[in-house]
Simulated assay, not measured.
Amino acid sequence: MNQKAWRIIPRPLMETVLNSHAQQPRVPQPLILHGPRGAGKTTLIVERLLDKWNTGPHLTGYVDLAESIKENHPKHGHSYPWSSWYNCPPPPLQSLRVQLEQCLESMAKKGINLGLISSHQIFKTLNKWHGISTALKQILEKDNVSGAIMTSRRKDLSLWDRAVSKLSVRCDLEESVGKRVVSLEEASYYKEAMAALELAKEVISLQQMKRGNAIKELNRTGGFSRTLAHSATDWPLLLLELLSAAAEIDYFQPKLVINNIEVLKHAVLSDDTSVCGSLYHDSLIWRIIALGANERCLPVFLVTSDGYYSYRAFMDFGFPDIFISREMFGWSPAEAKLHMVGDYFTSSEWSVLVEVLGPNSRHLFEVFALKLSNHFQK
């Protein structure tokens, strides 16, 4: 039996298209990579492109939302489902939010380590969209016995500097500067930026807590509120805006890949601290679109097998060209035969496979893995 290891077949044209988009520091639109299941979209990103997109000035955050479906993901020792992700138990929205936010936070910390995201920039971006005085006073009041902070008429920036100074004492120097040897002043700068990032997260968290009852009522009635939906995506969007503003060609070029974005739309709530999955999904995508249109956004790739993103999403989000849409098709029978027969299957085996399964690359890989297993020998 042929024991040749399975190899990843390049897709030169699609790789060129995606690389061209990824090479730009900021872009006006997100790119949706869609196509039938098993056509090789995830393989193309993970096996062919992701390493290149994490070398030199490039930094790519990769979030596979389907990882939370533990019964049907290779990360947990299982195979991908042969049918849609919608037929799998929906994951909790909270775990998907944590996945996305942790990815963006790690990217933002990289930007801080490169000296591109400062405490002042975080304040400026946060203060542009949020009234932060009350939250800052609450944070400062925690360690103050007197009521001076609450009655003070200090400007927001003064409150911000005091809160950052308080939090920077708790920041880990190694996390701020890594293994580099830096001066005391430089170390202080990095620690302040790290503290500012934590402070911004705490401010947004406090503001969302104040909307807790409204969100609970919204979930109970099944209504719609753009304001409450956007409040749930405030933190990831702040991080995206900071990263986009920090992007510099040939120095720091961040990008984000969200695989299986459709899983987010059907995520379930485990509590009433957030809006439902569909509202969160729509708010996240809408705000990425708005950031790109208004100020340019780092390249965002949304990867999906759901036909909704091929034929319907552009209508729901505004107009036909609101996304850059790239469809990836599977092999034709002739293309698949060229790659498969001889190396992996005999002509007689191929005749049966292509008739039963078609030239779907993932299905062929799973059949080939079965062929090499002990089960096939039996």
Rank of each mutant, 00 (worst) to 15 (best):
K75G: 12
P236D: 03
R7H: 11
M328A: 04
L33P: 03
R362I: 00
S278A: 08
W350M: 01
V354E: 09
K52W: 09
R296N: 13
T125F: 10
W85V: 02
H58N: 11
I69S: 04
K255I: 06
S20I: 00
S20R: 14
R26M: 09
S325M: 10
P89N: 06
V341P: 00
L44A: 02
F252L: 08
L126G: 00
K41I: 01
P92T: 13
K70A: 12
N144S: 15
R153K: 14
I122C: 04
N294Q: 14
R287M: 06
D161K: 09
T346R: 07
D51G: 12
I261G: 05
C297V: 14
S188G: 14
V164Y: 01
S95H: 10
S361K: 08
V300C: 06
V275M: 03
S231G: 11
G307P: 05
M328I: 05
K166M: 13
L364K: 04
G292H: 01
R154S: 15
H230C: 13
R296T: 09
R48A: 09
Y62P: 11
A39L: 08
F329A: 12
L157F: 05
Y62I: 15
V300Q: 04
N259L: 06
L284V: 03
F317V: 07
P28H: 10
S118T: 12
K179S: 12
E349V: 00
V354W: 00
K179M: 14
W160C: 02
P320G: 06
V257Q: 05
Q121K: 10
Q94N: 14
V169D: 12
F224Y: 10
L173K: 14
L104C: 04
S205G: 13
Q94Y: 12
E185T: 07
K137Y: 13
V17F: 10
A336T: 06
W350S: 04
T227N: 12
Q99V: 03
E366F: 10
K75H: 13
A163Q: 04
E101S: 13
P25H: 05
K337G: 11
Q121E: 15
K155R: 12
T60L: 06
A214M: 12
C297M: 13
L114E: 15
S231I: 01
G61T: 03
E366Q: 13
A293T: 09
D250K: 11
I132W: 02
K191F: 08
D316Q: 11
T55R: 15
L197E: 01
E105R: 11
K191M: 15
K70T: 12
R97V: 07
F123E: 03
D143H: 12
E198Q: 10
S305D: 08
E186G: 07
R287C: 04
P74V: 05
D161L: 07
L65Y: 01
S133L: 07
W331K: 05
N360G: 05
A229G: 08
H73K: 03
T43G: 07
L218G: 06
S83E: 15
H120M: 11
L159D: 00
A22K: 07
L357T: 09
D321G: 07
L269Y: 08
